[in-house]
Design a protein around this nucleic acid. Structure first.
Lengths: 197, 197
DNA sequence: ATAGTTCCGGAACGAGGTTCCGCTTTGCTC
DNA sequence: GAGCAAAGCGGAACCTCGTTCCGGAACTAT
């Protein structure tokens, strides 16, 4: 992928070597800190772990949200890609939808605090919210439509709404042994089955 | 109800008159601020609105969470009480459950930011979390059991889990016109219907 | 009125995100 | 290899927000 990630750049601006290295160091440090302290870890912790100043972090990632996006971009993309694949290989669209949702839930649940930060109203995290949705809503729409066409689910479900619902259900799933987000999501998915008769 | 709310007090400790008045002023100010700025409004805003210093607020409500609890205590209690009533007057336990959940959802959705703060992992808000659950889980358990006994829903649903799921679904429901928490909760409730054979 | 509490106000502290700016490193040129 | 401008860097400083502290003002019982 592009290092700068912006514009329709012809000739890459050729960033300095140290800058490039720092960016990677930061990504690694952030990933490590997120695993141990959750996505809400203070920026200072990440900077310290990377052995870098605060200014450096903000030069590369203007906002905490951008750093989070960068860390998880690959996994989100992988999840999105898995959608079409599942649809192609699953026996039924409904099964594909279920498996795909499980993928998403597993992803969220294993990232301490990520789900909580996906909320649209979380000031400063609009970019995160937008990235996840831009990437996943089209896939979800595809799966929902296939299942609806197959008559397996109600046809009036909006992918955006479902994604938000699933994301919400995953909030706090870690850190509370009494709450099993997976089970709740199963109920939600069960709820959109077309009443068979 | 008791003003102090603690102990099995015989003779009221007779707080000073100004203290009592300030407590009420604060409650009113907080309620007003919560309506306009949401439950996340800075403590300073509430103090200012009440025309009172910060020390005063913390004397009466040791923590932001305590203030929130105090403001909504009545409504939570009312919701809890409505549970038994609905069960007594509804045609079926399942109908009662549905109506009761709707009551709860309406309550959460109309309180900007409340649902988001109910999370167990929200540091400092354990008291809020605990109050809501202590009050509502028993009612929910009662409704679930009645519906389960009537054979209308799956018998393996835990009230705590369901309450958390519903609460989670309500997060950010205001502030996002594209997301309708009520619809998602409906799906969830639909999902716990016993698959009729 | 007076002493003894109880309360009050708001400065101050700590934590976190973000901004700013003087200094360092790098990459290019001669 | 030396010189220079641009690109980067570090971390002090600023802002917001919750919470704590304490000197002084406001009650109340006597």
């Amino acid at each position: 992928m592009n290092d700068s990630g912006e514009g329709a750049g012809q000739a890459a601006p050729a960033r300095r070597k140290d800058a490039r290295r720092n960016q990677q160091t930061l990504l690694d440090a952030a990933a490590a800190v997120f695993v141990t302290s959750g996505v809400d870890a203070p920026v200072r912790d990440i900077a310290a772990r990377a052995g870098v100043g605060l200014g450096t972090i903000y030069r590369h990632f203007p906002t905490r949200a951008d750093l989070i996006i960068a860390v998880y971009r690959h996994q989100v993309d992988a999840c999105a890609d898995a959608g079409s694949a599942l649809l192609a290989t699953s026996p039924s669209p409904h099964a594909a939808l279920g498996q795909w949702i499980n993928l998403f839930v597993d992803f969220l649940v294993t990232k301490h605090g990520l789900a909580a930060v996906l909320q649209a109203d979380n000031a400063g995290f609009e970019a995160l919210h937008a990235y996840f949705l831009d990437r996943l809503v089209p896939v979800c729409t595809e799966l929902l439509e296939a299942a609806a066409v197959a008559g397996e689910i109600r046809p009036d479900i909006d992918a955006y709404e479902l994604m938000r619902g699933v994301g919400n259900l995953c909030i706090g799933a870690d850190s509370d042994p009494r709450y099993d987000a997976r089970r709740m999501v199963e109920l939600l998915i069960a709820g959109l089955r077309r009443p068979h008769h």
